[in-house]
């Protein structure tokens, strides 16, 4: 029964243009980076920033750099969440608004199974977003610019001058880990949006509210006088992927961040199932 529900859900999801809009959107950022880098090598920019103390010869431009620049704070904290909520925010609330939810649940379908099938579709969509970003960014980047050492700098990630150099093999390993970390971070947004979609009748609210919350918490986090609150905000841990590029990976911190994000995700999930299985569907 669950498999049938999952198949139906996937069928529904992939018939909606917005799903493809999201997936194309995931490819847009790495494509834009490839086009910009093809037009302009970032090496002189970095050399200028490094100042008079260092000499930077050759070119830092390669496929790994494309992938690194693609995954930056803006992409993970704002752009990917937008693509996630576009589909996940609508997945339950959309059906309620259209009136099909009442129709479906009037048949002998287990509500938990029904929601589970929607959750699996949401997870698959989230995974596809990150996968497309990896294939276009890393694969496309390597195809166009080739391999090389990876110049990791916070200046490229929108952070203060964080710095490391990774050899080709190590760069590939770390970037795959970074994509894994990105998936974990984005899952939290998926679960939040899924919770709201299960609660709200209007999909717009389930789409907008997670974005507003993430942006609001990010702003709050940036105020120095709110630093005491920062450890309690899940957005604080959304940067865990950055540490995967450090000279020495701080596994303890990463695991800690990962557990906190997963803890939040689990809470959102439990909330979704708790509310949905008890919900009165009147319209």
């Amino acid at each position: 029964m669950v498999w049938t529900l999952i198949r139906i859900e996937l069928n529904k999801m992939f018939r909606r243009p917005r799903t493809y809009l999201g997936l194309v959107g995931a490819a847009l950022i790495p494509l834009a980076v490839i086009i910009i880098f093809a037009y302009k090598d970032p090496t002189p920019f970095i050399a200028r920033i490094l100042g008079d103390m260092f000499t930077l010869s050759g070119s830092i431009l390669n496929g790994y750099l494309v992938s690194l620049v693609t995954i930056n704070h803006g992409t993970i904290n704002f752009f990917l969440p937008v693509l996630v909520v576009l589909v996940v925010g609508e997945i339950v609330a959309g059906e309620e608004q259209e009136g099909t939810l009442r129709l479906v649940l009037s048949r002998p379908v287990n509500r938990a199974y029904f929601l589970l099938s929607k959750l699996i579709s949401s997870l698959l969509y989230t995974f596809l977003l990150v996968l497309i970003m990896a294939i276009v960014g890393l694969g496309g980047g390597l195809l166009v610019f080739g391999r090389g050492s990876l110049f990791v700098s916070g200046l490229l990630l929108g952070d203060e001058g964080w710095f490391n150099i990774l050899n080709s093999a190590e760069a590939m390993k770390r970037l795959l880990m970074v994509h894994g970390g990105t998936f974990l971070v984005i899952l939290t947004i998926t679960f939040l949006s899924f919770l709201l979609s299960s609660i709200l009748k209007n999909p717009i609210g389930a789409m907008i509210f997670p974005l507003i919350l993430v942006i609001f918490l990010q702003i709050i986090s940036n105020f120095p006088f709110f630093s005491e609150v920062k450890p309690y905000l899940f957005t604080t841990y959304m940067d865990l992927w950055v540490d995967l590029l450090a000279p020495e990976i701080p596994w303890k911190d990463i695991l800690n961040s990962g557990f906190i994000l997963m803890g939040h995700g689990l809470l959102f999930l439990l909330g979704s199932f708790y509310y949905f299985t008890r919900k009165d569907i009147l319209s």
Partner: peptide, 16 residues
């Protein structure tokens, strides 16, 4: 001086 490489090289100028 000139450093020729297929990749890139980052060195302190003093070292050169």
């Amino acid at each position: 001086i000139y450093l020729e490489t297929d990749d890139f090289v980052l060195l302190p100028k003093e070292a050169l």
